[in-house]
C-alpha cells in the first residue's frame, strides 16, 4: 500500500496542532506553554507550505512561512523574557501564581 505524501503531511499537521493545543491546555509552566506554542506554529508552517504546494505557488507559501517563523521566534523571545522576569519577581513559573497577583 502506497501512502500519498500529501496525506501523510496533512495527518502530521493535524497531529502537531492537536499536540500543541493539548500542551497549551494542560501545562501550567510558562516556558512549557511557549514550547507548546512552538509546536502549534510548526503545524501551521507545514500547513501553509502544503497549501501553497497544492496551489502550485510554493514560493508564495515559503515567503509566508518565513514571516510566520520570524513572528514565532519573536514570540518565543518575548515570552522567555517575560517568564524570566516573572520568575525573578514572583519566584515561580506557575501561571496560577500570576492570576493570583493583586494590585
Amino acid at each position: 500500500m502506497i501512502i500519498e505524501p500529501r496525506l501523510v503531511i496533512t495527518m502530521a499537521v493535524i497531529c502537531l496542532v492537536g499536540i500543541g493545543i493539548y500542551g497549551l491546555l494542560i501545562t501550567r509552566n510558562l516556558i512549557k506553554v511557549i514550547v507548546a506554542l512552538q509546536i502549534l506554529v510548526k503545524g501551521a508552517i507545514l500547513a501553509l507550505v502544503l497549501a501553497a504546494e497544492l496551489q502550485g505557488q510554493i514560493q508564495l507559501g515559503q515567503s509566508m512561512a518565513l514571516t510566520l517563523i520570524v513572528a514565532d521566534t519573536i514570540v518565543a523571545v518575548v515570552g522567555l523574557a517575560l517568564g524570566l522576569q516573572v520568575r525573578r519577581r514572583v519566584g515561580s513559573l506557575d501561571l496560577r501564581d500570576l492570576s493570583k497577583l493583586k494590585g
Binding site: 507550505v49 502544503l50 504546494e53 510554493i58 515559503q62 518565513l66 517563523i69
Partner: peptide, 14 residues
C-alpha cells in the same frame, strides 16, 4: 519534511 515538500529555503531557515 519542508525540504521533501520542495521548500528548501524555508527548510534551511527552520
Amino acid at each position: 519534511l519542508l525540504y521533501l515538500m520542495g521548500a528548501p529555503q524555508i527548510a534551511v531557515i527552520e
